[in-house]
């Protein structure tokens, strides 16, 4: 069994009277892509700030790479990379200057800026000022900045939010490459499809509390219903939808009746999505 890269034990944080994180506990294994999912304001960014030593929890303990983040934030921060939700680059400087500056802060020797820019698809734009780059390019540069120190853990806060498909896909590929390298990835997002595609395990956070945590497959097994969706032609020639719940005692009988009595035009099975499960557990959607 892998060691824990991150261990969180009953942490809390509040902004004045408002409780942002309310006693959450979880662990992330080394080399794992851990999806941290929830709607805006659920406590994702506050959690990531506590995990990276930017905020101190009011209560509870956080261990990252075996170090207490509150007491040894410097040692932790030298071994992690962070991609912030908000674009915070030096706009009047070039992409290369931004990356070289951060590499010098980490004391990276033999830093290969061209290779890193090529990984995020910005090789030809390295000398351009950041202010002249598109939103997608800036976001890819933010991801590249999180990679300058070849960190053991990558914290990515909504890395693909609002991006064009090309940029989003590029970032997803980088995340998978990082896992191949052996890095642990802590990914917050409210894009459930992305989380499903990338994450080894996901945690649902809602109103500061973790409401579910498992692999996407197990969550679907536990909470989701497999459905057979069919389109049939009625006597009047119109198309109508039919749904049969699978894994039920009446499934075989319902299927038999469908094919015996109706004219089936199309038929396919459908799995519950993580979004469906989130709604089922919390009673609210992810965009709210």
């Amino acid at each position: 069994m892998s060691a824990d890269a991150i261990r969180v034990d009953n942490i809390r944080f509040s902004y004045g009277e408002i409780t942002a994180v309310n006693g959450i506990s979880f662990h992330v294994e080394e080399g794992e892509i851990f999806g941290f999912l929830g709607p805006n304001g659920a406590g994702k960014s506050t959690t990531i700030k506590m995990l990276t030593g930017q905020l101190s929890p009011k209560d509870g303990e956080i261990t990252v790479l075996g170090l207490d983040v509150t007491r040894e934030s410097g040692a932790v921060q030298s071994q992690i990379g962070i991609c912030f939700e908000r674009t915070n680059l030096y706009e009047q400087m070039s992409a290369i200057e931004n990356l070289k500056f951060f590499a010098s802060l980490y004391g990276v020797k033999g830093f290969d800026v061209d290779r890193l820019l090529a990984r995020v698809g910005l090789k030809d734009r390295g000398s351009d000022r950041v202010s002249s780059l598109s939103k997608g390019m800036k976001q890819r540069l933010m991801v590249a900045r999180a990679l300058v120190n070849e960190s053991k853990i990558l914290f990515l806060d909504e890395p693909t939010e609002g991006l064009d498909p090309t940029s989003a896909n590029n970032i997803r590929n980088v995340i998978l490459e990082e896992r191949e390298r052996g890095a642990t990835v802590f990914l917050t997002t409210h894009d459930m499809l992305e989380a499903d595609k990338l994450s080894d395990r996901v945690a649902f956070i809602n109103e500061g509390e973790i409401v579910a945590l498992d692999t996407p497959h197990n969550l679907k097994q536990r909470y989701g219903k497999r459905i057979m969706k069919a389109q049939v032609k009625t006597d009047s020639g119109e198309l109508e939808d039919r749904e049969i719940v699978m894994d039920d005692t009446s499934t075989a009988k319902d299927m038999h009746e469908l094919f015996s009595n109706e004219s089936v035009v199309t038929i396919h099975s459908e799995e519950a999505s993580l979004e469906d499960i989130f709604i089922q557990i919390t009673g609210r959607g992810l965009t709210g």
Partner: peptide, 14 residues
């Protein structure tokens, strides 16, 4: 204003 300080203080910079 731009939040670059947030990025700086998340590196080994104290």
């Amino acid at each position: 204003q731009t939040g670059t300080i947030e990025a700086l203080l998340a590196t080994p910079m104290r």
